[in-house]
Design a protein around this nucleic acid. Structure first.
Length: 415
DNA sequence: TCTGGGGTCCTAGGACCC
DNA sequence: TCTGGGGTCCTAGGACCC
């Protein structure tokens, strides 16, 4: 009798197929590629020392001294006076993130961009595609693939990354935090509570400073203690249920769950918002100076809207006073991206919000309820004059945003 | 000279319409 | 003369994330 070898057995289905991949100290890593002399040195990306601002990214050498992102630059300088301080160069990091995304797409069919340095991937069903004949554990297959992917990002793009794997996004995200730097951690189904029990509540995505404080007052410090409060009445019980669901709830479909995925699927009816804001180097009390700065913000945000081909149906003004008191005023408008229209609206909002005795620290302009012009709007509505925006945009498309400023902005800036 | 800048989502009250 | 709900839009503020 002869035994015919059957086909190799299929691997088991992975229990933890959702991956959170994030880039380690992303802005610092990019700056190090552009200037290799920074490798190994303590580096802080943010504002220049002496300026108003916070740490947007910092290297592990600096973290060892206690520096954290979000910290005031002032405080960082006290902890790490000898670090290299670099300004955040908005705009240069995007292309690097896109190169990373291209690598991810070679390894996984479902990739979602959560932020400039963070991605979620869904490996469900990939075990069989990727398994080698001798591999029978689906979870192990996915871990191997993610390791290879992480190494490919390092080799092809030059950026260090970490990855977490879990059955839900919350677990994957917490696992990626544990994987840093440059590691891969998987939390299999059934292991979630053991993994989370000792973690501070703040580690759970969605629990921020305010919720943490409330929980502390309720005597809850860890996720394990929070889970033990399931069934409690009111807010505490709801928070416990939310965390339980995030830990062992059903495996989510990344496409269905829009939270944290602001980037995609916005074709057509757009939505979302666009804003620009600026903190003054020194607080400003004079109305004319406030208006000059506001006009510059309107100009910039309007240009971004036109570049994206969207119009706003709501315009908002944001004012932050020297004492950090912050207010917003908004107004619904017929869909527009014309800076004269937007400026008129913003000035009315300023009239409504203006309070004389308080100096202003920050100004912001936000466009929201965005719409991409449908076919009906693209009919050539007769405009009284061609919008000045069009001519400016053409110049900027070739020479960059700062190549042209509105006369008023330029003049006021000289003053 | 504490506390950036870009976003998302949620809540809650009032206006207005049916 | 007194008193409904439900739905939607608008506005203001706040929590959270990177």
């Amino acid at each position: 009798m002869q035994t015919v070898p059957g086909p190799p057995p299929l691997p088991s289905r992975a229990s933890a197929p959702i991956c959170c991949l994030d880039l380690d100290t992303f802005f610092v890593s990019v700056e190090r590629i552009l200037d290799p002399s920074l490798v190994g040195k303590p580096v802080v990306v943010g504002a220049a020392p002496g300026q108003r601002g916070v740490v947007t990214a910092c290297s592990y050498e600096v973290r060892a001294l206690g520096v954290r992102s979000g910290m005031a630059i002032r405080d960082a300088v006290k902890l790490a006076p000898d670090a290299v301080y670099l300004p955040t160069r908005h705009g240069i990091y995007g292309p690097w993130a896109r190169r990373v995304r291209a690598v991810l797409e070679r390894h996984c069919p479902v990739v979602r961009t959560a932020s400039i340095d963070e991605f979620f991937l869904d490996f469900r069903g990939c075990e069989r595609l990727y398994a080698r004949p001798e591999e029978q554990d689906g979870d192990a297959v996915i871990v191997r693939v993610v390791r290879e992917m992480r190494e490919a990002i390092q080799a092809d793009v030059g950026l260090p990354a970490s990855a977490g794997l879990g059955a839900t996004r919350a677990v994957a995200k917490m696992a990626s935090g544990r994987a840093k730097p440059a590691g891969v951690v998987q939390v299999r189904r059934g292991e979630e509570r053991a993994f989370a029990a000792a973690l501070p509540v703040r580690k759970y995505p969605g629990i921020g400073p305010k919720a943490e404080e409330r929980l502390t007052r309720a005597g809850v410090a860890t996720l394990g203690e929070l889970l033990a409060r399931r069934g409690s009445p009111g807010w505490l019980g709801e928070a416990a249920a939310m965390v339980a669901h995030g830990l062992d709830g059903p495996v989510p479909d990344l496409g269905d769950d829009r939270t944290a995925f602001h980037e995609l699927d916005t074709a057509g009816d757009a939505e979302g918002s666009l804003s620009n804001e600026r903190t003054f180097f020194a607080d400003v009390a004079r109305r004319d100076q406030v208006e000059a700065a506001l006009l510059a913000l309107v100009e910039r945000v309007a240009w971004r809207a036109r570049s994206r081909g969207v119009r706003a149906r709501t315009v908002a003004l944001k004012l932050r006073y020297a004492d950090f008191d912050t207010l917003t005023r908004q107004h619904a408008v017929p869909a527009t991206h014309d800076e004269r229209t937007l400026w008129a609206a913003v000035r009315e909002l300023l009239d409504k919000a203006w309070r004389r005795p308080k100096a202003v620290r920050l100004l912001g302009v936000q466009l929201s309820r965005l719409v991409a012009p449908g076919p009906q709007l693209s009919l050539p509505l007769p405009e009284a004059r061609p919008a000045p925006g069009a001519a400016l945009d053409a110049v900027r498309a070739r020479f960059g945003y700062d190549a042209v400023r509105l006369g008023t902005v330029a003049r006021r800036r000289e003053a």
